[in-house]
């Protein structure tokens, strides 16, 4: 089903809360997203991954799930770096965070994030949000890859 169209990309999850990371993974799986998920619990490690010259990652086949509150380098910084570098600016970035402050939402969109999802405490909502996100990822990916 969905997985057939979605297998093409790898999900980079940058999330310092291991519990959250686990829950996100579980829910994505429940939504039928079986893509490879690479997890970083530290902003600096994630940056190292994106901007390491030796890394022969395929930017066209990546999607980023990004938390904002991160140790060392925060989510804004990562978003800024990703969107200001021609090598990575086409990678779709979905902000997934507890903050729903309008100011911070605006700031993320200003910096060029592709979607902003709030983590609801209510588990049903949370899993629904993650699963919807999975659907979104499956749909959104194709035009984005061909873009430019």
């Amino acid at each position: 089903m969905l997985s057939s169209t979605a297998t093409a990309f790898e999900i980079i999850m940058i999330e310092d809360d291991l519990g959250h990371a686990r829950l996100i993974k579980k829910n994505l799986e429940r939504a039928g997203i079986c893509n490879k998920i690479q997890h970083f619990d530290n902003g600096q490690n994630a940056l190292d991954f994106f901007f390491n010259e030796d890394n022969n990652m395929d930017a066209d086949k990546l999607l980023v799930l990004l938390d904002l509150n991160l140790p060392e380098v925060d989510g804004y910084e990562i978003l800024k770096r990703l969107k200001s570098n021609p090598k990575t600016d086409k990678i779709p970035v979905v902000i997934l965070t507890t903050t729903d402050n309008p100011r911070e939402v605006d700031k993320c969109y200003e910096l060029g994030c592709n979607a902003y999802v709030t983590k609801p405490v209510e588990y049903d909502n949370f899993s629904e949000a993650i699963q919807k996100l999975g659907l979104l990822l499956a749909i959104v990916k194709l035009p984005n890859v061909k873009h430019d």
Partner: peptide, 10 residues
């Protein structure tokens, strides 16, 4: 709210 997400989730 961040740990709550975990509490509720798990």
């Amino acid at each position: 709210r961040s740990p709550l997400v975990n509490l509720k989730g798990f």
